[in-house]
Write a protein that binds this DNA or RNA. Structure first.
Lengths: 220, 220
DNA sequence: CCCGATATGCACCATAGGGTGTATTTTTGT
DNA sequence: ACAAAAATACACCCTATGGTGCATATCGGG
């Protein structure tokens, strides 16, 4: 991973409605010098007020089930208004939809509450340095999701060459022969050759058709 | 996680071309009583032969870069012929494509080689109990991928008229001016007019761009 | 009743695009 | 080292496309 850690501690806020859990986390995580707890809130609204009032945090440990605004909605709000804040979902629920919704809302990690305290600490720190902590059972669900989505895109192998693939991308981006030639520092006639080869391989005969095929079959 | 572990040890095979790494893993992982090393192979073909010969494994630690069949292709083969085998990719590469390809091929986990030995052990065991071990930096890439695919269809209202919408659909379907005119029983010049109007509204100036915009913004 | 939006149509022009053929240089895989 | 594949390039041809201007007819709402 990263060889060195940044000089200052990570400013961490906790949003968790159960007081015992909240205080427990605050106490335990605060023990580590690399983490500075800047707030522990019982509701997402509390955190938002804090931020609106000028408070600052690097990272938020967010529960999903909360009174008032739930953790996923809160994540969306945070990403929208304070995009530099890293949100980690910390919950006992490993419901597939909740996991995906969290991720789509912008959460950088999804940690289950049964994670051992010191592992939790590691995961929080890893999130601070560009990683995404994911509990193994959660990861399994995410991978299942990807695989499910992966089946949708049919194999679609037209064995395009490297150059042809690059040219294809440019066609999709709407470049003309000339622009394409300049982009690749080749003659317009060559660009054209590549395009015609692509047409043969994809069995089409116009840019419009190529763009459609490329987008629909995920060739780009 | 799971409260109890199954009675017998996990039968683990290692596929890794570098002898030192292979032997190191074999030695270290073999120390734990919950794991039984049933084979360490320098090539994927070696593992396949072993399985064809009646050998049995629960889990495979698979390198990606291998002489002969690479780890991803091998994963595909294993999933196809021995679907009960859990494949974990273990590699130094965190290339986005390789990660996604592995997952789509059926790998249950993607662990980076810089993972500390005891963490590796933990991840292997977690995979044995329905989890999916994913290194944090790898998880980040996967989440990015999900988010990218999660883009909601932005409203995108260009106030196209009825006719223009029909024409747009035909453009996406690759019709030429002439075909389009015939399809709607109008003059080619009229078809063209509609198209030019569409270009103005969508702020583009070629069919290729229109097709892309229409598909990406769900105008059709 | 008039205006604006929609739909229709034609003319003219310059350029981009599609199709075919040929040929040389590089890369790549035995 | 040799053959196949890929990438490069030019010529020629005709059509499709995009851009602009102008014009007519219809319809709905103010």
């Amino acid at each position: 991973m990263k060889p060195e850690m940044s000089g200052r501690a990570v400013a961490l806020a906790i949003v968790e409605d159960e007081k015992n859990v909240r205080e427990g986390l605050k106490y335990f995580l605060g023990l580590d010098s690399r983490i500075r707890i800047t707030g522990a809130f019982g509701t997402a609204e509390g955190l938002v007020s804090y931020l609106e009032g000028g408070g600052s945090v690097d990272m938020v440990l967010m529960d999903i089930h909360l009174p008032g605004m739930d953790g996923i909605a809160a994540t969306r709000v945070l990403q929208d208004r304070w995009p530099n804040v890293t949100v980690l979902i910390l919950t006992i629920f490993e419901d597939q939809d909740a996991i995906l919704d969290s991720i789509k809302a912008g959460a950088k990690g999804y940690i289950l509450k049964n994670t051992k305290p010191d592992a939790l600490l590691e995961q929080i720190l890893s999130a601070a340095y560009e990683g995404s902590p994911i509990s193994p059972t959660v990861a399994r669900r995410i991978l299942d999701e990807i695989r499910r989505g992966a089946r949708v895109s049919k194999a679609a192998d037209y064995s395009l060459t490297l150059r042809e693939t690059e040219v294809l991308r440019d066609i999709v981006n709407g470049l003309t022969y000339r622009e394409l030639a300049e982009h690749h520092h080749i003659a317009g006639s060559t660009a054209k050759k590549h395009i015609l080869h692509i047409y043969q391989k994809l069995n089409v005969n116009s840019k419009a058709e190529v763009v459609r095929k490329a987008l629909e079959e995920g060739l780009v």
